[in-house]
Design a protein around this nucleic acid. Structure first.
Lengths: 206, 206
DNA sequence: TTGAATTAAACAAACGTTTAATTAATTTTT
DNA sequence: AAAAATTAATTAAACGTTTGTTTAATTCAA
């Protein structure tokens, strides 16, 4: 069993699921894209559902967050931590835009309930840590009395909005249709700057 | 031809598409939910694709925005206008959460290209108007030199994030699983307050 | 009596999955 | 080290369902 081939299939799955959706992708075109026989998908993964689960686990394991340790860190104040979180999120999301589109789709639909809950679990994992940091900043009177939970929704929602559709992103920023915003370093910095400034404005006392 | 029945089908379509996706919903279960014969869907709408288009047009016509006229308004300053935009968006989105989930899905996938572009068109319609208001506020030195386009992404992204999944929203806010945040007036005001404060912090000079 | 509305049944195509046969690789035995 | 035996990988073909759609017959309303 070549691990290469398994990964080939997973890569093809991410690409197709992200642009056609899970139900909108047939195993036949997936196998064609991965350049393997139709039956190999079920041979390796058991079923289409299990391929999906395997894909998620494979990618999630790649992106284990440093956010928990960040919360414990004593050398940084809360604003510094928020800066690191912004950098980390933007970096991570823009490096895997297709995978995150798949996750967004799965959050929207509750068709495959088990996976739906799994994905919500992934996203909500960091919810507590980040709101805790904001709450601590408030207690230390470094931050204003903002709504920590909705502030987190704003952070993650902004990035998701940008990631949602390449063409929507280009319409928004006035770029032409075939520009790829997700690989553009200048655009990445622009997002980071915007979010850092937004959080500064919103969180810091004046 | 009873208009009731057509609307019945459209209502069932919104409900099912929003929780199962377009491809994940069969015409058979749709007809069952709408309490009509299987063949009636194609009889009325021609095809599943055309039903989708009809559903979008039907709902969009219900929500024609007042944002264009708002931009022209001379009696309000730019901050007031942003407040109105926040109120209008939150009101509109929370009144039709399922429909907006369908739109989000369609933005994510580019499967039905025509519809994909149609939905992007709907969303980008207001992009220009709102960024114009922000830019005008900047020129008048009422606003800081923010990133108008990403500020808009933050506004719309925050609401989309909340709308994305009921259970995710409940996890975020610490509510129990069967709470319905979209019909809760208190929660609606909470969102509006957060966004207004966020924009004030971000836009206004200090 | 004419035309629209409604139905149950059937259609072909596409779907995920399984099977049974074949090839390739690995292990065991000589 | 070569041959035999065993296991794993790969294939083309077929399976039974489900899909969106159409048909042809029937009911209803004007």
């Amino acid at each position: 069993m070549s691990l290469d081939k398994k990964e080939h299939i997973i890569d093809a799955a991410i690409e197709l699921f992200s642009e056609k959706g899970f139900e909108g992708t047939s195993i036949r075109e997936l196998a064609a894209k991965a350049d393997v026989n139709l039956a190999m998908v079920n041979y390796y993964f058991g079923s289409k559902d299990k391929l999906f689960e395997a894909m998620v686990e494979h990618k999630v394991s790649f992106m284990r967050g440093r956010i928990e340790e960040l919360e414990q860190d004593k050398t940084l104040n809360e604003l510094d931590k928020m800066d690191r979180i912004v950098e980390g999120y933007v970096e991570r999301f823009l490096s895997h835009p297709q995978f995150h589109k798949v996750l967004q789709q799965e959050m929207l639909v509750s068709q495959r309930e088990e996976m739906h809950n799994r994905v919500i679990g992934i996203f909500s994992q960091n919810t507590h840590n980040i709101t805790s940091i904001i709450e601590k900043g408030i207690r230390k009177k470094l931050f204003k009395k903002v709504d920590p939970q909705l502030t987190f929704a704003t952070l993650i929602g902004t990035i998701n909005q940008i990631l949602m559709s390449r063409s929507l992103c280009n319409v928004l920023t006035g770029k032409n249709e075939n520009f790829d915003p997700y690989t553009d370093e200048h655009f990445k910095k622009r997002i980071i700057n915007h979010l850092k400034q937004l959080l500064r404005d919103h969180l810091l006392l004046h």
